[in-house]
Simulated assay, not measured.
Amino acid sequence: MTRTYTNLANESVQVLLDTLADKNVAPDIYQKTMTKIGTLLGDAILSQISNVHCNVYLACTVEDADFLAKGMLLSLENYLKTVAFACFWNQRFSPFEIEDLKVAPILRKYQEPVSPSVNYLIIIKSIISGACVVRTNLTDLIERISPEKIFIVAPVMYIQAEEKLKNSFEEDIYKKFKFFYFAKDDIRTAEGEVIPGIGGDVYHRLGFNGQEAKNKYIPEIVKNRRSKLIKV
């Protein structure tokens, strides 16, 4: 096993990643660690954004909304004037039980209104392995908006994910990509788990009882932001 850290991963970040990889860590600690990591990833992204008035759109999956994405929003909104937010509920499965043939159709989504012309589209996910969820959600987003830059963000990525994601899009799209991650792993089991990755199935690690349960969940961050939009 070879884990490669990026220059974004200092000793404190590596300790947080070790916490995620520890399968004995309780869900509440795991959630708090994901939130901290989200904040640190947000800080890394802000180093690439010079204008506080720029148009930023952050998108995540439902399981990451109240933890990883929440941490990133705390960082971004502390500096930027406005950040629009989107959340996707995906059903990930392998047609014909072929592990390498993953699809992740969107069951529902929450998307805040935003100008069609976006300076930065940020896609954040707890781990990017086969990239099917990121590919699906990004394809949906770019049908509606035209981002100048696309930031693909995760604490951990599988070694082949970056190239696989680029190969899923035409050059005019993938040339906008910039990847932000703390570590890259090169081992994945036959079941699709990246080792050490983020310590297994993120749904269960975060306290959800599997994929069906997480797709019935309405994140607090979605409830709060939707309520504020309705009042405007």
Rank of each mutant, 00 (worst) to 15 (best):
N224W: 00
F85V: 03
Q211N: 10
K23P: 02
V52Y: 13
Y174F: 11
D64Y: 13
R144L: 03
K81F: 01
N7R: 11
I221W: 06
V222A: 09
D201W: 01
I150N: 01
H204D: 02
M34I: 02
D22W: 06
R188S: 10
I150S: 04
I49V: 14
S115C: 13
F67P: 07
E170R: 09
V62S: 10
V52S: 14
V222I: 15
E97N: 15
T2E: 11
N24I: 03
E148L: 12
A44E: 06
R108V: 06
T4F: 09
H204P: 00
A21R: 11
V222G: 06
I49P: 10
I198C: 08
F179K: 02
I221T: 05
A183Q: 09
F177S: 00
Y181G: 01
R3V: 15
L229W: 09
P196I: 02
G71Y: 06
S126Q: 01
C54A: 08
V134K: 01
V153K: 05
I49E: 06
K149L: 03
F151C: 03
V222N: 08
E77W: 06
I123K: 01
L68N: 02
I195E: 05
L46M: 12
D43M: 14
V156K: 10
Y5L: 02
D201G: 04
D22M: 06
L41S: 05
Y30T: 00
T33Y: 03
E77L: 11
I187C: 08
P95K: 14
E148C: 05
Y217T: 06
S129E: 13
D43L: 14
N78P: 00
Y158E: 11
M34G: 08
L141M: 08
T19I: 14
P196W: 07
R135C: 07
G42P: 05
N78A: 15
G130T: 15
D186E: 12
I198N: 07
N137I: 14
L20Q: 05
E212D: 14
D140E: 07
L76E: 00
G200L: 10
R135L: 07
S12C: 00
L206A: 01
N24Y: 09
R144Y: 01
I98F: 12
A21T: 03
N51V: 13
F93P: 12
F169E: 02
M72F: 04
K178I: 03
